[in-house]
Amino acid sequence: MQAIVSKTLLFSCVDGPGNRMVLFLQGCNFSCPTCHNPHTKRRCNDCGLCIPVCAPKALSLVEGKIAFDASLCTNCDDCLRICPISANPMVSLMDVGQVLALTRQNLPFLTGITLSGGEATAQLKFSVALFTAIKEARDLAHLTCFVDTNGHLGPVGWDKLLPVTDGVMLDIKAFDEGQHIYLTGRGNDKSLASAELLAASGKLYELRLLMIPGKTDTRRELEALVALVKRLGAHTRVKLNAFHNHGVRGPASAWETMTKDRLEQIATTLRAAGLSQVITPVVWL
């Protein structure tokens, strides 16, 4: 059982409670124009186009497959910019044993582990196998297992993952179906159903909403958010993220950036409507 991992962090304080080791799994089932990590979307098809742009020669083709030498890489990201299909030649394959070994090496520093992406649940089998192994290992069982997801997973999938998961951070991209399709390429019925299912199971750690001026911050969107949170429990953590067009490619790079004032205004509205845990960004760029 292997996962395609685009990046591993030993220190993250923005992917759940405490310090978390984060695995970013490659590949996503949404296609968001607002994505800041487009290179995590697709899997590499070994076309080789990125090889010539890599000045330190960290990339090559070995038996028709892209090969990456991390010791030469200067993190310039030129290969990511050139890739025509939003893939990443620097991914690594990791099996559960390798992830457990890495976890053990850093154990005293860790509150838990978070699977993010791309879309973590798109590699469901691996996610379940990893969390199961952590829960079964005596020295690791105290670690909390979190998933950061777009919620595009059905009840059968959640049934497998939730018993070994401690918390889920769920992105809701939009409440209006048309808007959601525009923003992700897919409908939102699964994501909304996931919110209800996760809340009912007590594993919904946080709802995350990206506030895009004129798109996801309209009165109708906010009313729908309030209605959902009230169904889930007014104490649900609601994390508001501010859309920023810096670093976005394609049409969304022309969209307006969310201002601090406007976001604070939204937070005030939500709090006034009875939401008790509305969280706004600490850092503004």
Partner: peptide, 13 residues
């Protein structure tokens, strides 16, 4: 130094 800058509030998609 907080890793995962690109996943900081407002960036994570």
């Amino acid at each position: 130094r907080v890793m995962g800058q690109e996943f900081v509030a407002g960036h994570r998609q």
